[in-house]
Each structure stands twice: as structure tokens, then as C-alpha cells.
């Protein structure tokens, strides 16, 4: 008997490869977020594309250059670009320019209820629901901004640590969380008790918000480009190693003195993007060569191959808020869009 090669190849195809739709857009996927059943994707040519179930994606030209940052804000998105513009974009594709900083890039954006925040250079700008504008200048260029889950704190990462702005009755007051070095993106734990940044030196740094106790999470072979919170524990799942490195943040001390759980090994290459599937206590892990794995946060469980290698670095994975679809994007502009509901037979 002679093996049928076509059939062999076919049998290695994943569900997602068989059933998903595949697009080539020729500009790197830089950002992606979900609102409801829709996934909104930002590209390196300034375009935004909306992916909705059973529809062809439609695009709008939002920025004239790279979309550097994007965040969900209620029922719209905020974007910042290397054209210096800070935009509010509705799900119908309507664009409102909130600010234009010219040759100064808008590097990060954040939102809480009606508050819309962006950073450009050393300054953070806040527009309130009533459209009042405030700005805070920091000692060095800002690399990340994010609100705490209850919206009371705004964390601003920069060289030398994080400035946390606390919302008071009629003003904002600030407090410094210092750690030597260059800090990148910043995140709050879901309970708001911890603050974590990715650093230039292939490590994470964290602080307990109430007493500023330091947490150092190191040992990575590469820079941590992506992190995400997963499950009830919760775990902080991170890229930057050949597996997804998951730090437990339960108990009084969080990950202090504990080992991370490592799942979804991609072999010799490094993970570049992680997305959580919170209800399942599981994580999608994208790799430098395009491989995407799904694994429970349990070292005894085997990961499932969601997509085989494509040769292009995964730069975005988003599961829609309705948990019905997944979108995978890479740095060459390839996008896979697929239902993740079990097929009815």
C-alpha cells in the first residue's frame, strides 16, 4: 500500500486551519482587541479591520502610519499612532480625533468608563467623560499606561519604575514605585493588589500596591513582549521563554519564593504572544515561527496544537468576548479568523 501524501498532510491540519478563514494584508498586525462578538485589528499601515461572525472583514484608514497601541473602551476603541494622533473609533468605523501631537508618537493608551488616556513622550493626558483635559509630566518617556480594575489608580511605567496616580475627590495624587532599569508595559492583577512591568532586561518586576514590596521574576532568555492574567488563581502568563511561564498570584505573598508553572513548550524557539481563556484556566501561546498552542495551566496536561508553524512571528491572539471566535495575527500581516465553538455533527 502506498500512503497518500495529500491525505497525510490533510490529517495533520488542525481544526482551525481546516475551518478558519485566512487573509494576507501585507502590513504587520500590531494590536487586536475584542468588543462583543467583534475583533478589531490594527495594522502597520494605519488601517483598522473589523472581523465579525459570518461577514467579510471591513477596513478603515485610521492612522497614516503605524498603529502603536489600542484598547477597548466601553463600546468603542482608542488608538494611538506614529502619526501623533490619538483616536476614538466606534464599531461602525466612525473616527473622532481626540488629540494630535504631530511628530511625537502616541505610545500607549488606556481607558476606564468615560476616561480616555494616552501618553506621548513624557506626558500622560487624561480626558474625562465631560471632556475635561488633564496632563501629568514624568521624568522620562512613558512606555505604558493602565487603569487598575476599579479605576481608582492609573499606573504609568517609565525609566526607573512606575508612577501610580490615585484618583481623589477633585484631584489626582501620585506615588512612586521605584526599581532601577527601563520598564515597558505595565499591568494590574485582577484584584488590583499587584502591579507588574516587563523590563528591558528579560525580566518582570512587580510591587504589592499597599506596601511597595518588590517582586522580581527573572530567568527569561528573551524580552517579555506579552503577558496576560488567567484563571481564578490568578496566573500571570508571560512570553519570553520556550514555554509560557505562569506565575501564581494567590495567597498573601503571590509568586514570592515560588516557582512558576511552565506549559506549552514550543521547542527551541520563544513564545511571543499569550492570550487567556479564563473560564478554562487555559492559555493560547503564539511563537516566533507562527506555531500556536493551547494549554491548561497544568504541567501534567499536554498542549493542543491550534495552528502549525507558518514561519512568521505571532504578534496578536484574541478570543472574542463572546468566546465564539479566535483571531491570530502575525508580523507579516497574515490573519487567521475562526470559530472556536465545537463543530455540530
Amino acid at each position: 500500500m502506498i500512503a497518500d501524501l495529500d491525505q497525510l498532510e490533510g490529517s495533520n491540519q488542525t481544526e482551525l486551519e481546516k475551518n478558519g478563514e485566512h487573509f494576507e494584508f501585507n502590513a504587520p498586525v500590531t494590536e487586536a482587541v475584542s468588543i462583543g462578538n467583534t475583533v478589531v485589528v490594527g495594522f502597520g499601515d494605519g488601517k483598522i479591520r473589523f472581523f465579525k461572525p459570518d461577514q467579510k472583514p471591513h477596513d478603515i484608514q485610521a492612522h497614516s502610519g503605524v498603529i502603536l497601541c489600542m484598547v477597548k473602551a466601553e463600546d468603542y476603541i482608542l488608538t494611538g499612532g506614529d502619526d501623533g494622533r490619538f483616536l476614538q473609533i466606534s464599531m461602525d468605523g466612525e473616527i473622532e480625533e481626540i488629540a494630535n501631537f504631530g511628530s511625537r508618537w502616541v505610545d500607549s493608551v488606556a481607558a476606564y468608563k468615560g476616561d480616555r488616556v494616552c501618553s506621548s513622550d513624557k506626558v500622560v493626558y487624561i480626558w474625562s467623560k465631560e471632556n475635561e483635559k488633564k496632563s501629568f509630566t514624568h521624568q522620562s518617556t512613558i512606555s505604558g499606561v493602565t487603569f487598575s480594575p476599579n479605576g481608582k489608580h492609573l499606573a504609568v511605567s517609565r525609566y526607573g519604575g512606575v508612577t501610580v496616580w490615585r484618583r481623589e475627590k477633585n484631584k489626582w495624587s501620585s506615588s512612586n514605585y521605584s526599581w532601577k532599569g527601563s520598564h515597558g508595559k505595565v499591568t494590574f492583577s485582577p484584584n488590583g493588589k499587584y502591579l507588574v512591568t516587563s523590563m528591558q532586561e528579560n525580566q518582570l518586576h512587580g510591587w504589592r500596591l499597599n506596601d511597595k514590596a518588590d517582586l522580581a521574576m527573572s530567568g527569561y532568555p528573551a524580552k517579555i513582549k506579552s503577558f496576560n492574567w488567567v484563571g481564578d488563581t490568578p496566573y500571570l502568563v508571560t512570553s519570553g521563554a520556550s514555554e509560557a511561564v505562569c506565575w501564581p498570584f494567590d495567597g498573601k505573598e503571590g509568586p514570592m519564593g515560588r516557582k512558576p508553572v511552565c506549559v506549552a513548550s514550543g521547542g527551541k524557539q520563544y513564545a511571543t504572544f499569550v492570550e487567556s481563556l479564563t473560564e478554562e484556566n487555559a492559555v493560547f501561546v503564539g511563537f516566533k515561527d507562527g506555531l500556536v498552542l493551547l494549554s491548561e495551566i497544568d504541567e501534567k496536561k499536554n498542549p493542543i496544537t491550534i495552528r502549525n508553524s507558518t514561519g512568521s512571528e505571532v504578534s496578536a491572539i484574541v478570543v472574542s468576548e463572546t468566546r465564539a471566535h479566535i483571531l491570530i495575527g502575525d508580523i507579516k500581516g497574515n490573519v487567521t479568523w475562526s470559530s472556536i465553538r465545537p463543530q455540530q455533527n
Binding site: 502590513a27 504587520p28 503605524v66 506614529d82 508618537w105
Partner: peptide, 18 residues
């Protein structure tokens, strides 16, 4: 010592379509 702004700007420029 390294130039932090160069890391930021070069990484951004590498995301361009052209």
C-alpha cells in the same frame, strides 16, 4: 548604557508596512 528612545523608535519603525 543604551538609548532607550532608540529601542522604542526603531521597534516602532519596524512595524511599518513599507
Amino acid at each position: 548604557t543604551v538609548r532607550g528612545d532608540l529601542i522604542r523608535i526603531l521597534s516602532g519603525l519596524m512595524k511599518r508596512a513599507d
